[in-house]
Amino acid sequence: MTESSPFRRGFMSACGLPALVLFSSMVGFGTLASEASLDLLPTIVTTIGIWGLPGQMVMVEMVAFGAPVFAIALAVSVANARFLPMTLAITPYLTNWRVSWIRRLLFAQLVTLTPWAMALQRWPSMPQEDRVPYYVGFSMMCMVGATAGTVLGHELAAVLPRPLTLSLVFLSPAFFAMVFASVRQRAGVLSLIAGAAMGPPMHMVSPDWGLPLTGLIAGSAAFGVDAYLKGRAA
């Protein structure tokens, strides 16, 4: 392996806050899963397989209620529907990636918040051929952190002191708030402000549809305003 293959650079760059964020958020998930009396192995498979915390939480909560399989799958799907616009947003950067559909579809499994936010920031200035290996390396390190967190939360649920577990839960939303505060491109900034303002009230109106509607309305409004300002500047 060359000294700095894109895979290795991606892996190393996640070896810090990104992996720690995955670790900390999965501690809470592991704890919840052990309280719902899920065994360790299905809990780990859920983390890697679903690879999106809100859906994982919904699954475990509904398993605890003893809900039917179909209802669980539907609720998990709704909770993770943000993966559609997220995948739509980064896939165009792979237009010139000449590989089979199977590899494209396998790659899609790795779309989740932490590496996705990294991709939107770093992919545009990265050579096309480096993007996927960098992303895969980054994701592998994130999975190491997530698995470690899942195991720790599952096995040590009762032992961890409360201020520590709460701080670990807080790390993930704080990290993303800071990552998004570093976005400088105008359309992105407008979308983030509009989404943050609309998200909580819309969620109170409709817990199921509040978030998708926030995305569509706030995102489209921001896109429209940005296009209008561009038009005036031209």
């Binding site: 947003a89 909580p200 969620h203 926030t214 309305i217």
Partner: peptide, 19 residues
Amino acid sequence: SRWFACVAYAVLAGFIARM
């Protein structure tokens, strides 16, 4: 694809704000 990015950002900002 720029519209997709706007929608994704808005969803995630709403999601983080909610949390």
